[in-house]
Amino acid sequence: MTVIHLTLKIWRQTGPESKGSFKTYESGPLATAMSFLEMLDVLNERLILSGEEPVAFDHDCREGICGMCGAVINGKAHGPEKKTTLCQLHMRHFRDGDTLVIEPFRSRAFKLVKDLIVDRSAFDAIIAEGGYISVNTGGAPDANAIPVPAFTAEQALDAAECIGCGACVAACPNGSAMLFVGAKISHLSLLPQGQPERSKRALALVKKMDALGFGNCGNEQYCEKACPKGISISNIARLNREFMKAAFCSVEE
């Protein structure tokens, strides 16, 4: 078992209104097979026993799919590994003696809650505006009634893989949510089932995204690099296309 030692500079902030600062901790010995969050667990166990409040951080499935975890490590959302959530980042990717600066996902639209925890409910608010196909339960036609080309289904799934973690927003210099919104718009507008509400959806989601304080895309591509699911920025191009088409051609408000 290989063991490393790290210096951790972690953002500590007791609440949204209080002033935060970095606090430095020595990690102690860490097995390289450990995940990043297990490293925080070990630190927190030590802090609890010493009477200090442990570092608050969001996490749940620890399998890279629920989208709950996330922090910025040395300036990179979810850390240095490509297509990896924080919970799937392992200590073998760091070197003995490294210093890690660990901060929350910062953005105007994500209010800080405590330490590394932020409020991402703005994402839910966007989806509520129309990130769905309006079908009530019951009465759906047979699942094979409408064929969907395998390639189209795969493309839709590429976009639908988004886990809503918010790394794209944290990585974007403009705090834009266009990768998140683009992924949802792509998923639904590619499928035949999503056609009836296609224009309405594009207009509504963009409007809500703007109202919540997210910025605009500046084609910097930081979002794509940070995305743990590898959602392509071509989804932003599709979002722009869908929005323009709807804004100019749609008769719907």
């Binding site: 196909i133 759906a140 036609p141 699942a143 969907v148 080309p149």
Partner: peptide
């Protein structure tokens, strides 16, 4: 009925090349 409902919601299940569900 569950499969019908989910497909109507836009769940992108795996498909055969002819477009039917795999």
């Amino acid at each position: 009925q569950i499969i019908d409902q989910c497909v109507a919601q836009g769940v992108p299940f795996a498909r055969e090349y002819g477009g039917l569900l795999a």
